[in-house]
Simulated scan of single mutants.
Amino acid sequence: MGKMSAAVGSVATLAAEPGEDAFRKLFRFYRQSRPGTADLGAVIDFSAAHAARGPGPEAHKVVRSQLSLSSVSDHDAHRAGLQPVSKWQAYGLEGYPGFIFIPNPFLPGYQWHWVKQCLKLYSQKPNVCNLDKHMTEEQTQDLWEQSKEFLSCGSFQLWHLRRRLSMAQ
């Protein structure tokens, strides 16, 4: 899956224009940079967190998180497509209580299964969706089926092209 990273910045750095959230602003910044030219000073690379024990910009931010090995049995973890909890490596960030990063706890092939579950099941009501404030309840019913129809009819390429053009402006 490549490098897993998180951007951490000050509130001033994350100030966004009206109608634009902080994540979108950071996403656009890193997407528009030419390969190899982006300033990655505010990025924490969790794939290298094991080595970030000495001095350096990441060393003071990444901390090892302890997990309760008895919270999930190996049998239950396996049934859910997860490795045993004893094999997980968990990390946190100083100053961000409750944030835990677990690099790929999935058994081979189960990452795709859970991505599909998130898209197919968890987008259904009564779950809350980030589209709820922009669309009516009828429009957000069964988003999985709507997206399958949208992608299969070929209009996705046209939508994607329009979206890329609008983001470039």
Rank of each mutant, 00 (worst) to 15 (best):
Q146T: 00
V43G: 00
N127V: 01
A51M: 05
E20G: 00
M4N: 06
D142V: 01
D21C: 14
R24C: 08
E149M: 13
P103E: 00
S5F: 10
S47D: 13
A16Y: 02
F99Y: 13
G56W: 08
A22T: 05
L69E: 13
H75S: 11
P55V: 09
R28L: 15
A7Q: 07
C153N: 15
D132I: 07
S155E: 13
F23R: 10
V62K: 02
V62H: 03
S147K: 04
S73Y: 06
K148L: 15
G41I: 01
H134E: 09
Q32F: 03
L119T: 00
L40V: 10
E58R: 07
T13L: 05
Q124W: 00
Q169H: 12
P35L: 10
Q111C: 07
C153K: 12
G95A: 07
G95W: 08
Q157R: 14
P126I: 06
A15V: 12
V128L: 09
G92A: 05
G2D: 12
C129M: 05
V128C: 04
R28A: 13
N104E: 09
Q169E: 15
A42P: 13
V43S: 00
L165Q: 12
P18W: 08
V85I: 08
C129L: 08
T13H: 07
Q32K: 10
E20D: 04
K61W: 14
F101G: 02
E138D: 13
P103R: 00
E58P: 00
G154Y: 07
G9A: 11
G109C: 08
P57F: 13
S10D: 06
W144A: 10
G109R: 11
G154T: 04
D39N: 15
K120Q: 15
N130A: 11
S70Y: 07
R64Y: 04
D132H: 12
V85N: 01
S47F: 03
T140Y: 02
F29K: 13
I102W: 01
A12H: 04
V72M: 13
M135V: 06
R53K: 14
L82R: 03
D74P: 05
S152F: 10
R34H: 09
G98M: 04
F150V: 08
P97L: 02
R164T: 06
D142Y: 02
C153Y: 06
S5G: 08
S47G: 09
G56T: 08
Q83A: 11
D74V: 09
S152A: 15
H160N: 12
W88C: 04
Q139P: 00
S73Q: 05
E58Q: 14
A16W: 02
L131E: 05
A59Q: 08
A52T: 07
L107Q: 13
L93R: 05
D142H: 04
L82W: 00
R28K: 13
S123M: 13
L119E: 10
W88Q: 01
Q117T: 12
L151M: 14
W144F: 14
S5I: 09
A22V: 02
P55I: 07
V85C: 03
E20K: 09
E94V: 14
E145A: 13
E17R: 12
K120R: 15
M4P: 03
L14Q: 07
E138H: 10
S33T: 06
D132S: 10
H50C: 02
H134V: 04
R31A: 14
N104V: 01
L67Y: 00
